[in-house]
Design a protein around this nucleic acid. Structure first.
Lengths: 164, 164
DNA sequence: GCACGGAATTAAATTGTTTATTTAAAATTT
DNA sequence: AAATTTTAAATAAACAATTTAATTCCGTGC
């Protein structure tokens, strides 16, 4: 029995050695890229006292302050309990604060503190720098292609994660 | 002052609405795709009793049994301590076992158990299925393009994570 | 008045990283 | 050749993100 990879057709050896690769290799590839990205971003963020995962919360609140944990979780693609924990830590660290909603007692609204606001710029820079380093050698068009493909994947996966 | 996004040139609105996107959006996009992938894979793997992150260990050992924790960590793109703990849990779960190396007292070799071997096929299927679902609607060429771009990113990030 | 649903939280399990410790092999020095 | 230093591999401990499952609390409707 032959191996699973590398014996498809050996078409013409034109481009690179991506011959036997297919959708089955997607999960590992994305996982690994994300891990590297996360580690690098974490280090870059380290100076601000933030962790990778918290950056999105700050940036989202910078765009629209006073979001609820549920709204933040939804927009950042994370489950609610994750957001609760992250918000808790960030509140303890002084980046944001929770305020009860006057109208609806079930809601909590999250607001950036002065410290949080001051960190926005540097966080944006770290995220952008990380992306730039990752995209080194790629044309703008290639970057947009990559983003488009990632968006497609996300779009394909979303329903499977929501349904039950 | 204008916003940072969406006012580049508005070139011609040809393709989609990817106008203002650039490298700065890479980190969030990859992170989110990886999260979705991981969650879906985790659910698919749930029946075998495995967690996302453990699948790679099994598949790697299926290709080459008796690797050391360090080799596994290197090949799976994870730090050594992560591998040590994961191996420990998987050993407790009965999927693999550690054996001391006779030659070099520092080395530990990791071997699949019968249970581990039996899980290989289903894990491979889960990973592949997850990739297939993610790639739904994409041509083979697009998938290969995506893999190539991810590989480039990984290649760009690697040095920054190793150096120090 | 009481049941149902939604929002937030808590609890438990795991991967992941960084920093620091242990133990064994290699290299260097005396 | 013996002792000391250095390097390498595995592990331990501490901290954060993430998910699922279960709980609590509040608002609405029957």
């Amino acid at each position: 029995m032959s191996k699973k990879k590398g014996d498809k057709k050996a078409k013409s050896g034109k481009k690179k050695d991506l011959e036997g690769l297919s959708a089955a290799d997607l999960a590992p590839a994305i996982t690994q890229a994300a891990r590297s990205m996360r580690t690098l971003l974490s280090r870059s963020l380290g100076e601000t006292g933030l962790y990778a995962g918290q950056d999105g919360v700050i940036l989202m609140l910078a765009e629209e302050d006073g979001l609820t944990p549920g709204q933040l979780a939804l927009r950042l693609g994370v489950k609610a309990p994750t957001m609760t924990r992250t918000i808790g830590r960030m509140e303890a660290q002084g980046f944001l604060e929770r305020r009860a909603d006057g109208m609806d007692g079930r809601l909590t609204k999250v607001h950036l503190t002065e410290t949080g606001l001051q960190s926005v710029e540097q966080i944006g820079r770290s995220v952008a720098d990380c992306g730039s380093l990752a995209a080194k050698g790629l044309s703008d068009k290639e970057v947009r292609t990559l983003l488009k493909l990632l968006r497609t994947i996300e779009h394909n996966l979303q329903p499977a994660l929501t349904e039950d």
